[in-house]
Design a protein around this nucleic acid. Structure first.
Lengths: 146, 146
DNA sequence: AGTCCTCTGTTGACATATCAACACCGCCCT
DNA sequence: AGGGCGGTGTTGATATGTCAACAGAGGACT
């Protein structure tokens, strides 16, 4: 860095982005090696799995902070891979985890834990980890667009 | 959220990703409206601009945490839009900001400041902002892959 | 009934990201 | 010289994300 022209807000945003990108690429590389899942597939599968295996499409989008279009395309791809099914239901679409998807996400879980611990949790001390968690939770709860 | 199966590390990572995605989509929407720049173009232009307008391709990739391929494709697109030029130089390629790129990033700066302040800085208190900054800086400085 | 909303999801065109393979250059080594 | 080797960048195929336009269901209003 040299001229340092950004405002405080922009500077924080750029730093945050860079840190996020760094951790993300490391974790994604691990996950691709361990399970063959892409980041997007993993996000959707985790979301479904943690909610018991069935969710409205809309709920997934809200949960991940994705837009409708992106999720729609992603689910189309995941249907082809037998990870999920879609069923029309009153005023929406219900997405359900299929056995292949469940098997895959269950197999990927431990790798994900190890990877996130190595690239994120262990690099922060316990104090920073707790602080970061509190901060992102506050950020999410103050989000007007959800 | 319901069953809560993730480890502490995975849970923190998912929360962080979601918060990042939320802020990102809001900022990107603002920037697209204000300047027509995509997130990727903005990142590269900011990086170049803050370094005085000329950087080795490799340095940009390191600075942004991107991989070579991604940056190469991105620069190809940005050359077509007259934002930057590429020149072969001893052991690498030098990327330079062109007038069109400089003009665009200078015009976008204030919008970016306003947007990041609104969607990030103002949602954190001053304390949280300082804490987040310290955390990401520590994360970045402990990164072994750079 | 009809019309007008809003919410939800889809589609196709296009922008962007990723992966594997390749090309080039400078350096070290013998 | 000749032969590896690591660092740097490119290319094309493919996967993924974004945008604008559309489709359909249901609710509110007259």
């Amino acid at each position: 860095m040299s001229t340092e022209d950004s405002s405080e807000a922009t500077e924080l945003w750029l730093l945050w982005k860079r840190a996020h990108e760094t951790v993300r690429s490391a974790v994604v590389a691990d996950m691709t090696a361990a399970s063959g899942l892409s980041e997007a597939e993993l996000s959707v599968l985790v979301c479904l799995y943690e909610s018991g295996g069935v969710l409205r499409q809309n709920a997934i989008a809200a949960d991940l902070g994705w837009d409708r279009t992106r999720l729609s395309h992603q689910l189309t791809r995941m249907e082809k891979r037998d990870y999920v099914t879609r069923d029309k239901v009153a005023n929406g679409v219900e997405v359900a985890l299929r056995p292949e998807g469940r098997r895959t996400i269950e197999a990927a879980g431990p790798s994900l834990d190890a990877s996130t611990r190595r690239h994120l949790l262990d690099r922060l001390g316990p104090d920073d980890a707790a602080a970061l968690k509190a901060i992102v939770e506050r950020l999410l709860s103050s989000d007007s667009s959800r």
